[in-house]
Design a protein around this nucleic acid. Structure first.
Lengths: 104, 104
DNA sequence: CGTATTTATATCATATATGATATAAATACG
DNA sequence: CGTATTTATATCATATATGATATAAATACG
């Protein structure tokens, strides 16, 4: 199974190998999940350049486990938290916008 | 008071004329609020071109009052909902990205 | 103007994202 | 290899965003 679909499924909390299809996702829902995954990936790579998960967590009043979830595309993490975390790593609105614009 | 600051305050649930200062917002927090307001404004104008609040609400499984709040920058509305609503009005990731990129 | 449609405001119960904590697993590094 | 640091996973109580509902206010429109 290609990596993209695998990530999509896993980000929805699904286990790959289950009969559950992700075909019942509307195009908008797929785009939405892709946006979250794109932000998640970018957060991870940019954060790694600048600080530890614990440092970032402290900076935004969150916790290290929550940052780990954010970086791993956990579906319980909101775009809110992803963006707050990215801004705290130094991301500009321009950079965030470009990441989203690059989806789809 | 200039419109921008007024919107910022109001979006935080504050009444203009209160002594509450918004100077205790970090630069990141200000940018975050501005991103939400920019999305909110865009949702309103684009949705109006295409459908009623009720129609949009039904389309994404939400309610008309919640769409009204989304379009009016109510702080209880998440970026999640704003983006889901925008996608349902036909916005592309490119368009959403550009709006965010235009902040700051 | 008067009626119909649309949007805004208020309230509420509930689902869900949240930070906190503990700890296992992985990685760095001497 | 062995220890320290960092990251991932699990659990939990709680804050907050959610849709539903009722209804007021605004707008469209004949």
């Amino acid at each position: 199974m290609e990596q993209i679909k695998k990530e999509l499924l896993e980000s929805r909390g699904w286990k790959v190998g289950t009969v559950s299809d992700f075909l019942d996702l509307t195009p908008e829902e797929i785009i939405f999940v892709e946006i979250k995954l794109a932000l998640s990936r970018n957060l991870k790579s940019e954060r790694q350049k600048a600080m530890t998960q614990r440092e970032l967590a402290t900076k935004i009043g969150s916790s290290q486990p929550r940052i780990a979830k954010a970086e791993n595309g956990d579906p319980s993490v909101s775009i809110e938290l992803l963006i707050r975390a990215m801004l705290a790593t130094g991301a500009t609105p321009q950079a965030i916008g470009q990441i989203i614009a690059g989806v789809g």
